[in-house]
Amino acid sequence: MLVIVAEPVILSPIVTLATVADQTSGARLVAPPNFNPASPTVDQVAVEERVAALAKRSLKKASKVAGLKLAISMMDLTTLEGKDTAGKVRAMCQKALYPLGSDPSLPQVAAVCVYPNWVRLAKQCLAGSNIKVASVATAFPSGQSPLPIKLDDVRRAVEFGADEIDMVIDRGAMLSGQYGKVFDEIAAVKEACGAAHLKVILETGELGSYDVVRKASEIGIAAGGDFIKTSTGKVVPAATPAVTLVMLQAIADHYRATGRKVGMKPAGGIRTAKQALHYLVIVKETLGDAWLTPDLFRFGASTLLNDVLMQLQKEKTGNYQSSEDFSKD
């Protein structure tokens, strides 16, 4: 069933889509003709100043430990490589279940994130746990394939058992002003996801400015994304604190206007515990308590976990740790 979204669709400064609730009825949203959401502009210098200020939060002792454990619980442990094998995926799943074998008090990660080919294996490895399996889809990472192929990709991954789908938007369409096309694709993917959660990757590193990031966020949210996500990890720059803040502000405005909570996932380039804490501070001071949960915030990362573990051990023992103390999978 197609539902044309009622005009006016999205109004500055708070973006709302009155019919977002329709997704529960399974209806696919379709952008109206000449769709162009009026999103607020973003001042680059001020955004970067704000995240730089938040980087100066001083986190010690209990808050540091709590923050790092929270970060682990929010991690989408990721491998997205051409050379991925069963061995690699199994090892990663093991790490997801038992981040540090010696310390059972540590939380498990939120999810593992793999290509569709490895969804089944990951599901097997993680059976019985609460760890989700996320799969990239939609001709990841470029998204440069026809929509039916992308949708097929999604349906296949869901069929394999994926709990979450990380799709990429059509950046070409975004940058050439075909906002309706971007919207419609996301809406179609959302429909194809069925019960699986949808994360919409904006690939902010290709969007050129925070203004476009903000607009893409509005579209991703309005078209039914459960999460919006910065990056594929295949483009530099990937996630940055500033781009994350811009996306969080779009989420905040959407929540204030509609009451619907959309999640956020920075991915790529987050390698250190210090960076992870910085992101958590940004979330805490932008969206507040409700988003300090894996249900609404995730880190997409492949190497972050070890640094977090290392810092936790340091807090526990008081000694600086060696990287060789932690398994490299």
């Binding site: 986190l59 209990a62 540091k64 204030r256 308590d289």
Partner: peptide, 16 residues
């Protein structure tokens, strides 16, 4: 008429 964000104590900063 708005949905207020909650800036509570889910995760707090220790004195520094």
């Amino acid at each position: 008429g708005s949905h207020a964000l909650d800036f509570g104590k889910a995760w707090t900063y220790a004195p520094s």
